[in-house]
Design a protein around this nucleic acid. Structure first.
Lengths: 307, 307
DNA sequence: TTAGATTGCAAAAACGATTTAGCCCTCCCG
DNA sequence: CGGGAGGGCTAAATCGTTTTTGCAATCTAA
């Protein structure tokens, strides 16, 4: 249906004169769309998720969406509550799910709510995701250390079923195995602590027990942070005695002396891809239901003085 | 108006049976309330604002509110756009305003939109605010350095009219003046750079020009970060040659070696007070229009090895 | 005993946009 | 020339709550 030029001008002049601003609540009620997306992450105060949130906001604003956020703190209950709470108020979700959120996420998917997983995903679940290629990142880092003739390469990880952490560990294990260097004792799995400071003594202890270690890879930014602290407390020289890699790039690693080599996640790219996948779902008016594709964005290995 | 016990039970059983979930859009349309608050900060990826965002979310969730956020990047235009955009969609604002947002903020206040400023405020504007006592923080830090017999104390600040930065500088100037130690040449004001890395060469240059400096106070976390980098690059020993304080506590300062002494902002307290002030306005059904009060929360001086 | 007040519930009005239906009027074509 | 087909606009219906109004039935007080 067409509207005449004249009428358009007339209405627009009235809009200007009266300062009309459409009421989104009314539009939402009628259309069922809120133009808000929900961002659920582990911890918005963590530098990785914080910069992810920034990129997401920017990408969302560009297409007229607002972002509400929530931190799960790796607490399944909180995560599920957040999903329940927001489900009716957002047009789509960007979620970094903890393991226990699987059924909630499945329910969302079944209810056809637009949804993209970030940072991690559920293998075999046909839910679109955007995240860094964890395997490739750690694989590269490990091979870099092998090339530097390191023979006692340790890996510090979180004991979790989360796929991104398992992929990181698998890359480490396989890279070493293929070079005949793998030793189970050098693989440290620590529980998930709410209070990250608890990692320091654990890593400290591990280092004392294994003085033969000549290189370390930390699977997350906070493990890296406290790992470096432990190394320094033990007066272990980086990189002379022990070379160091950490996942995630943070100010701390950039400014540490020596500066720490990292497997960096291209946050902007991840956010952009995630928004793209989400928009695809939100715009396809239930046209294509098939979109179980995921995106793995390549990590960047940043070599600094710690290796 | 009362409803019989029996009817209440009856309705609640129906609610359970049918899985009824109220439609917020409809409620919003009717009541004019969205149960969403807008958080506008300089940069959600900055560790200070990120942890503030986390505390705000927690405090808001406790009273049934959701949070949408936006980063201004100290760009007045973007900030004003954000206010315009969100004004009709949120019940209240938490804003860390840049200077150029003053008129927008005044307009909000005039429109009686619940509003609390955070991290900074507009003096003489009768708009409630919650922020750290910037003056007290720097004052304490400066006096601490004076007590340690430092005579050439430098201060690195951002050249801005923002009141929180001016207060920090005033505390430094007055503390030194009262001890006859103030020297204008040791006060460095740098422009606001979007790309924070630009601060490093500027501070580097400043340090070369003033080898007499025996202590430094950095007015923000990123100035501190790059200041420390510059100090290390020049092989200036901390704290032997130069003692260091920075505003804001970050992982970087905690883990730096030596660990950096800081003026720490009690983020949780700030967020809590801000939410309290905001709720006061949102709940007072236009009862009290007078609430121009502000809250200054005391900072915490954390002494580490850098002094 | 009766006018008036109170109580519990049902029905209707209102919020403001979007969508559908309705209604002229013009145009096209047989 | 008449009937059908749009074209442009107005009016009404709709979304799902909250708020207001209405209406009996019961209760209070003079």
């Amino acid at each position: 249906m067409r509207i005449s030029e004249e009428m358009v001008r007339h209405i627009q002049s009235i809009i200007k004169k009266t300062g009309y601003i459409p009421n989104r609540a009314a539009a939402s009620l009628r259309t069922g769309k809120t133009h808000v997306i929900g961002l659920i992450v582990e911890d918005i105060a963590n530098s990785f998720f914080a910069s992810l949130a920034k990129s997401v906001e920017k990408a969302a604003a560009k297409v007229g969406y607002r972002v509400v956020y929530g931190s799960t703190e790796n607490n399944d209950g909180r995560g599920n509550d957040l999903i329940q709470l927001l489900a009716k108020q957002v047009d789509g979700f960007l979620i970094a799910p903890s393991i226990g959120m699987k059924t909630s996420v499945q329910a969302l998917k079944k209810s056809r709510k637009p949804l993209v997983l970030i940072d991690r995903y559920f293998p075999g679940e046909e839910i679109p995701f955007a995240l860094v290629d964890n395997y490739a990142g750690v694989r590269k880092a490990t091979e870099c250390l092998i090339k530097k003739q390191k023979k006692q390469i340790a890996f510090v990880n979180i004991a979790t079923e989360q796929v991104q952490m398992q992929e990181r560990e698998r890359a480490y294990v396989e890279a070493l195995q293929q070079n005949g260097l793998f030793q189970k004792k050098l693989l440290l799995r620590l529980p998930y602590y709410q209070d990250k400071a608890q990692y320091e003594p654990r890593i400290h202890q591990f280092l004392r027990k294994h003085p033969e270690i000549d290189a370390m890879i930390f699977a997350t930014n906070y493990l890296g942070m406290f790992g470096i602290k432990a190394l320094k407390d033990l007066d272990i020289a980086i990189p002379k005695q022990v070379a160091v890699f950490s996942f995630d790039d943070t100010d701390l690693f950039r400014f540490s002396s020596p500066a720490i080599s990292v497997i960096s996640q291209p946050v902007q790219e991840i956010a952009g891809q995630a928004m793209r996948l989400l928009l695809e779902q939100m715009n396809s008016g239930a046209k294509k239901t098939e979109s179980g594709e995921g995106v793995l964005v390549p990590p960047e290995l940043i070599l600094r003085n710690s290796v």
